[in-house]
């Protein structure tokens, strides 16, 4: 059961456990900015008064992170890599309700 996205193996360790890296191919990255529609923003605002988890924003960030990882993977595919190692995530809030998610890592070939 190899967890691969479009044939590319993604890990956040420096090496791939149980595999040998033969070639590094540089930094690959993917980013996305997403927002929820106004209705969900209003609900999140109401929820914020009461406190607790803001489920709308949890979903939003989950979706956008998957999209960012997907873009990073297609970047790696385009240069012919077989895996992305040492993946890091960065988040920045541009306005309330929209967030930029950035995923980056090193594209490698392994055997």
């Amino acid at each position: 059961m190899e967890q691969v996205v479009n044939g590319i193996l993604v890990v956040n360790t420096e090496t791939i456990p149980g595999k040998i890296i033969t070639e590094t191919m540089g930094v690959v990255s993917g980013s996305t900015v997403r927002a929820k529609h106004l209705g969900k923003d209003i609900f999140a605002g109401l929820r914020n008064i009461v406190g607790g988890e803001l489920t709308q924003y949890t979903e939003l960030l989950q979706e956008s992170r998957q999209e960012a990882v997907g873009r990073m993977v297609s970047d790696a595919m385009s240069i012919g890599a077989t895996a992305v190692v040492n993946v890091r995530f960065a988040t920045s809030a541009i306005t309330s309700g929209a967030a930029e998610l950035f995923a980056y890592g090193t594209a490698v070939k392994y055997e």
């Binding site: 967890q3 993604v10 890990v11 956040n12 149980g18 988890e53 803001l54 992170r65 993946v87």
Partner: peptide
Amino acid sequence: SSGLVHANGVFGPS
């Protein structure tokens, strides 16, 4: 085998 796992949550004070 290996692969990325992630989980998140947004929490706010009332």
